[in-house]
């Protein structure tokens, strides 16, 4: 049996003021799955994402990602875990404005000590694949929202992560750009990339995810398989463009 990429067991999170953000949440994500975590504002979905990414620790319970007990890692260990196993895409892109697109993308690789030439080659392939190679020397501020999010995705894929976490990836985009990103996530999923997508957009969840987990008041209210979304096995052969992304 294949080992799950994410194994959250009985995780609770209470903040310093005693307010509970998550209550006894358990969740398993298998390799190649695309899971949408859906819920209203303040439901705890971003907290769950932070626990999985090692950005925060649960008050109780365990979080295992790619075979690593994330909840026991110290700050340095969590950083190494993220750079090796996780790719993150944020709602507001979180690109560094004073770095060019190319330099933003190579950053995660350079933090691991990868040589600059190797990192640039990999980044060039990703930018080419994602259709933004012509902006390699531009600064993020000059790109459209959709282009910026593509850059963020390229950066997230730089170290070939086991898990791609996307936090409201279309939340700051217009509908056309949102559709671009939606297509991109779908393509990645077809390539076999495990994805956890946090959103409150039901349409995005249905379009990109094979499974939808609804969170309400810090608890999992439902966990259902989507019929509309394509599964990697059901998908057509990977397109040439996304194949290099893996």
């Amino acid at each position: 049996m294949t080992e799950p990429v994410i194994q959250v067991s009985g995780a609770s999170k209470e903040f310093d003021d005693g307010q509970a953000a998550l209550r006894e949440v358990s969740l398993t994500v298998a390799p190649g799955e695309a899971v949408a975590v859906l819920g209203p504002s303040g439901s705890g979905k971003s907290t769950l994402l932070n626990l999985v990414a090692g950005l925060d620790r649960p008050s109780r319970g365990t979080v295992t990602v790619a075979g690593i007990r994330v909840d026991t890692l110290n700050e340095a260990g969590a950083a190494r875990f993220r750079r090796q196993k996780i790719g993150m895409v944020f709602q507001f892109f979180n690109l560094l404005d004073d770095l060019t697109v190319l330099d933003n993308v190579v950053l995660p690789a350079e933090l691991t000590g990868t040589s600059r030439s190797v990192a640039r080659r990999r980044a060039g392939e990703l930018l080419d694949t994602l259709g933004i190679a012509k902006h390699a020397r531009a600064y993020p501020g000059r790109l459209s929202g959709g282009e910026r999010q593509r850059v963020a995705v390229a950066r997230a894929l730089m170290n070939r992560p086991a898990l791609l976490l996307a936090d409201e990836p279309t939340g700051a985009l217009d509908s056309a750009s949102g559709a671009e990103v939606e297509g991109l996530l779908n393509e990645l999923h077809q390539e076999g990339q495990t994805i956890v997508l946090v959103t409150h957009d039901l349409a995005l969840a249905e379009a990109c995810a094979t499974r939808t987990v609804r969170i309400v008041d810090g608890r999992i209210a439902s966990d259902t398989l989507n019929s509309a979304a394509m599964t990697p096995s059901a998908a057509p052969a990977a397109s040439k463009s996304t194949a290099v992304a893996r």
Binding site: E75, A76, A79, R80, N94, L111
Partner: peptide, 15 residues
């Protein structure tokens, strides 16, 4: 926030 981004991408405390 920039430092947060870098840390989210894997920058260790020492870095």
């Amino acid at each position: 926030r920039d430092l947060g981004v870098a840390k989210a991408l894997g920058m260790t405390p020492r870095q």
